[in-house]
Simulated scan of single mutants.
Amino acid sequence: MRLWSLHPATLDRVALVACWREALLAQKVLTGATRGYTRHPQLDRFRACADPLDAIGHYLAALQAEACVRGYRFDGSRVLRMDAVSPGIPLTDGQLAFERAHLRAKVAVRDVAWLPRIPEVAVAAPSFVEIPGPIEPWERI
């Protein structure tokens, strides 16, 4: 499971679609509707929020908004809390830089034309607030 911390506009088509699908799975996990992925480390940052369902709802809403901009049809009715406010989840600049490099490596193989759309300095998704620090401890390197 990869719940990208990068702004959805940074993600290529494959990453955006996969992230949408995996974030919907994360929403299921957070509601207790599935037994798989319950211990996935990327979910810890959503669980740490005052309202985890609001947090994943806000994250999903940002993905859906980007999909709409691109003309994709992501079904917003699948998001339980589409109008949730930003949870302001802390995210280190080291993690953002790591994810930017990780995305660039993937895009270099599958969609070279997308590379110029990945900014030199990573921008966080709307659900996150950038703070100084190294790669997050939950990241699997």
Rank of each mutant, 00 (worst) to 15 (best):
V14G: 05
W114H: 15
L80P: 00
R45Q: 13
P8M: 07
A108I: 05
K106G: 12
V112W: 00
R100K: 13
A84Q: 01
V112I: 14
L11D: 01
H58S: 07
D51S: 13
A55Y: 03
S127T: 11
R47Q: 13
E139S: 15
F46K: 11
F128Y: 10
F74H: 05
I118T: 04
I89C: 04
F98S: 06
E130T: 15
T10P: 04
L80R: 09
V121Q: 11
T31P: 03
P137H: 11
D54V: 12
I141Y: 03
A23S: 06
G133L: 14
T10A: 07
L115W: 02
V85E: 12
I89G: 00
I118S: 04
T34A: 11
C68N: 07
I118A: 05
V129N: 10
E139H: 10
H58P: 08
F46D: 10
R13D: 12
G71C: 07
G94P: 01
T38Y: 05
H40V: 11
E130K: 12
F74N: 05
D51V: 15
I118C: 05
E130I: 14
R45L: 15
R104Y: 09
D111T: 04
A15E: 08
A9H: 04
W138G: 06
A15P: 05
A61L: 10
C19V: 12
D93E: 08
T10N: 05
R73N: 11
R73S: 13
R47K: 15
A48V: 12
D54H: 08
A84M: 00
M1C: 10
L91E: 01
L96I: 00
V123W: 03
R81H: 02
T34M: 06
L6Q: 03
P52Y: 02
H7N: 14
G32Y: 05
G32F: 09
R45N: 07
P87T: 00
A48F: 06
G71S: 04
L96Q: 00
E99M: 09
Q27Y: 01
V17N: 01
A9V: 11
W20F: 07
K28H: 07
V123C: 10
R70V: 08
P134G: 14
R39C: 13
S127V: 14
P8S: 03
Q27D: 00
A9G: 11
D93P: 00
V107C: 09
R13S: 10
L63I: 12
A125I: 06
F74V: 06
A62I: 06
A62R: 10
A108S: 14
A18S: 15
A50E: 13
R2L: 08
R110S: 06
V107F: 01
E99R: 05
A124C: 09
S5N: 13
R81A: 04
A23I: 06
F46P: 08
V79P: 00
V129R: 15
M1G: 06
G133C: 11
A18M: 13
S127G: 14
V109P: 04
A33T: 13
A113M: 13
T34G: 07
R78D: 02
D75I: 08
D44L: 15
V129S: 08
S127Q: 13
V85W: 00
P132Y: 05
R39E: 11
R35H: 10
P119I: 10
A101M: 10
I141V: 15
A9F: 04
V107R: 02
V85P: 07
K28Y: 02
I141L: 15
I56F: 03
L80F: 02
